[in-house]
Computed example of a mutant assay.
Amino acid sequence: MERNVAQIALFAALIAALGLIPQLTLAFGVPITAQSLGVMLCGTVLGARRGGLAALLFVGLVAIGLPLLAGGRGGLGLFTAPTAGFIIGFPFAAFVTGLVMERLSGIAVGWAAGIAAILGGVVTLYVFGIGGLAFVLGKSVTEAALLVTAFIPGDLIKAVLAGLITAALFRARPHSVLSRS
């Protein structure tokens, strides 16, 4: 139990730490950050339940005002901003990433983690992000989806990195990749 809590807290801190990498804010108000890589790693390393809880802890800390999002942002006001869908989607994305990772147990860890990161950390997160953008900006789902295409190259790179990092961790410490235990 204590180990699970520590791992969940550690990965919430990882998401926060990845927010320290300078962001690039696009014209429609959504920044490109490294934090989605942390969400992907929550799922690929911790699995569905723990990974989702780590991302949920992070979102909870942001909601109470801690400046943990890229650019030092935090607080309830972010849930009415163009980034709201992405923030709300973090726990779901981590959960789906972990679930896919757990289901792909017959595939090599690196490949499974890359596939899981794309399905959970990109596709699932985009569903929430596009919905949030459409709602907050008053755009159609198609218009919001077109805005999000700017993120695709970077997010695919992050998915590959998640696969490589998870595979390296599995080689070095197989028992630490809980999605495989």
Rank of each mutant, 00 (worst) to 15 (best):
M1L: 09
M1K: 08
I8Q: 06
L10D: 02
F11Y: 15
A16L: 11
L18G: 04
L18R: 03
L18V: 09
T25K: 06
F28T: 01
G29V: 02
V30P: 04
P31Q: 06
A34C: 12
Q35H: 10
G43K: 07
G60K: 07
G60F: 13
L61N: 10
V62I: 14
A63F: 13
L68S: 08
R73Y: 10
G74M: 10
G74Q: 10
G77C: 08
L78G: 15
F79S: 05
T80R: 07
A84F: 14
G89Y: 15
P91K: 14
R103N: 06
S105K: 15
G106E: 05
I107K: 04
V109H: 06
G110E: 02
A113Q: 09
A113R: 10
A116W: 11
A116S: 11
A117C: 13
G121S: 07
V122C: 02
V122F: 12
V122Y: 07
T124L: 05
Y126W: 13
Y126L: 06
F128R: 01
I130M: 01
G131N: 09
L133W: 00
L133T: 07
A134F: 00
A144K: 07
T149G: 02
A150Q: 12
A150V: 14
G154L: 03
L156W: 01
K158A: 03
A159F: 11
L164Y: 09
T166E: 01
A172N: 07
R173G: 01
S176P: 00
V177P: 09
R180T: 14
R180W: 13
S181F: 05
